[in-house]
Write a protein that binds this DNA or RNA. Structure first.
Lengths: 149, 149
DNA sequence: TTGTATGCAAATTATTTGCACTCTC
DNA sequence: GAGAGTGCAAATAATTTGCATACAA
């Protein structure tokens, strides 16, 4: 039910100290439905009749990111992409360098990685976050890569 | 000897099919001396009396990246950073979220990671590159983090 | 009511392209 | 000399900030 989701979104916002405004609920709902990270522009474009200003979306995402509700990722497309933070699985993305298609994967073994890195980087005390993206070719683009540069 | 380095730089450029121009040699030399990835702005600022236009630096880096000589990394600072590609070690960076300090680390176990990811992402045929950054607190910033938000 | 949040305008900043001139090969 | 490369101007674009108005609590 859409109403359940809305309530869930309201709760998320309240818990983080935000007011449950229409724009925020719309953005959250959009993120909940998105299968993969989306850009500010995609969110604005996907609002249909309920228009939200790009700046507002920017500020909402900025706040949600700060509150740890949303994660920002870099797909090397010249802009940022956002998704709801996945608390269960520390997942990452594979991005097709040709068409931009995205898929998830888990198992980056963050604990081991962080421990190993801290052992080497003597000037660092703690690791607080990480980013990891793989870039490749999806099956479709891999086939039709015949075209020369 | 600086002359040796210059010769080395000339060779690198020629091999990649570029002409060994002054701006390119200066940028390469700057990258060779840099301990950590630098931004276009830092390169321009670091040229001293030999001024190179920002656009030129941009184009040089763009070309060198394309040729596989330079690597581009994202430190979440709103701009790109560049470093000479390290063919020996697949190293990555830890960035201090407070002061921006950077250190290297190796051992991301790329082969294993790529294999694991490909097994999960059924729509992908190959992985061609990856990006991995850790964000943390350096010893200095870690101590003086007393200041409240 | 009250202070947070949004919309609109506009500033910033990084990136990118067009074009005429310069310099390497 | 020919064509690659550079500098300058200017176009794109994404991000960010100021401020007056609107809305949640």
């Amino acid at each position: 039910m859409d109403n359940e989701r809305r309530e869930e979104a309201v709760t998320i916002l309240r818990k983080a100290g935000f007011r449950a405004t229409e724009p925020r609920l719309l953005v959250l709902s959009f993120l909940q439905n998105a299968k993969y990270p989306v850009s500010i522009q995609e969110i604005v474009a996907g609002m249909g009749n309920k228009s939200i200003h790009q700046v507002t979306v920017y500020r909402i995402l900025h706040a949600l990111k700060h509150a740890g509700i949303v994660t920002q990722v870099d797909f090397r497309h010249g802009r940022s992409y956002y998704e709801l933070r996945d608390e269960q699985h520390d997942h990452h993305h594979i991005v097709c360098v040709k068409c931009g298609r995205v898929e998830d994967f888990v198992g980056c073994d963050y604990e081991r990685l962080a421990a190993k890195a801290l052992k080497q980087a003597r000037g660092f005390a703690t690791i607080v976050s990480h980013s990891l993206e793989l870039f490749g070719m999806c099956n479709t683009c891999s086939k039709r890569k015949v075209r020369a540069a």
